[in-house]
Amino acid sequence: MTLEQPPATAHRDLHSPDGARRGEHPGRAGNPVVKVLDLAWLVFEKPDLDRAETFARDFGFTVAARTADELRLRGTLAGTDAVVIRRGPRSRFVGPVFQAAERADLDRLARHAGTRVRPLGPGRAGRVVDLVDPTGIPVGVVHGADVGALLPGQSPLPHNTGGSPLRINAAQRPVREPARVQRLGHVVLQTPRFLAALDWYLDTLGMIASDFLFLPGQRDLGPTMVFLRCDRGATAADHHTLAMHLGPERGYVHSAYQVTDLDALAAGGEYLAERGYRRTWGIGRHIQGSQLFDYWRDPDRLMVEHFADGDLFDASLEPGWAPMSASGLAQWGPPVTRDFLGATPSPAMLREVYAALRAEDTELTVTRLLALKKAMSR
Rank of each mutant, 00 (worst) to 15 (best):
R232I: 09
G268I: 07
L228F: 08
H286V: 04
Y271G: 03
L302T: 03
E274L: 12
M303R: 04
A236D: 07
A234M: 10
D309I: 12
G289H: 08
V304S: 08
E274D: 15
I287A: 02
L272Y: 04
G289P: 04
G282L: 12
M244D: 04
A267K: 01
G247Q: 05
P248A: 14
R229M: 12
A243H: 02
T241C: 11
R301Y: 11
D261N: 08
P319D: 10
H286S: 00
E305D: 07
F307V: 13
G268D: 03
G310M: 14
R279D: 01
D294E: 12
A237G: 09
Q258K: 10
A267P: 00
Y295C: 02
E249R: 12
F227A: 13
P248F: 01
D314T: 06
P319V: 14
A267Q: 07
C230Q: 00
A236C: 06
D231C: 03
A308W: 01
V253F: 11
R301N: 14
D263V: 06
L292W: 09
D261S: 10
L317G: 00
H286T: 02
G268N: 04
F227I: 14
D300F: 11
L228D: 11
G269Y: 13
D294L: 03
L262P: 00
V259P: 00
F307P: 00
C230N: 09
D309K: 05
E274C: 07
H239C: 13
R278N: 06
Q288V: 15
G282M: 06
R229V: 14
D263H: 14
D231M: 02
F293K: 00
G282S: 05
L292A: 14
R250V: 15
A243K: 02
R278F: 05
C230R: 02
R279H: 04
W296L: 03
S255E: 07
D261Y: 07
E305I: 03
F313Q: 10
H306P: 00
T260W: 06
M244H: 03
G310N: 06
H245G: 13
L272C: 05
Y295K: 02
G282R: 00
H239N: 09
A243C: 04
D309M: 13
D238C: 09
T280I: 15
D238L: 15
D309A: 14
Y252L: 10
G247R: 03
Y271I: 12
E270D: 14
V253G: 07
Y271V: 13
Q291E: 15
F313R: 01
P299S: 08
R279I: 09
L228V: 10
D261W: 09
A267I: 06
Y295M: 02
Q288N: 11
G310K: 10
D294R: 00
G247L: 09
R297V: 09
G233Q: 05
S255I: 07
S316F: 08
Q258R: 13
P248T: 05
T235K: 08
L272H: 02
D263F: 15
G233R: 10
C230F: 08
A264S: 15
W296C: 04
L262I: 14
L242C: 11
H254M: 08
I287V: 15
L292R: 03
F313D: 12
S290D: 08
D263N: 14
R232H: 11
R250Q: 09
D231K: 02
G289S: 09
H254T: 07
Y252I: 10
I283A: 06
L228Y: 02
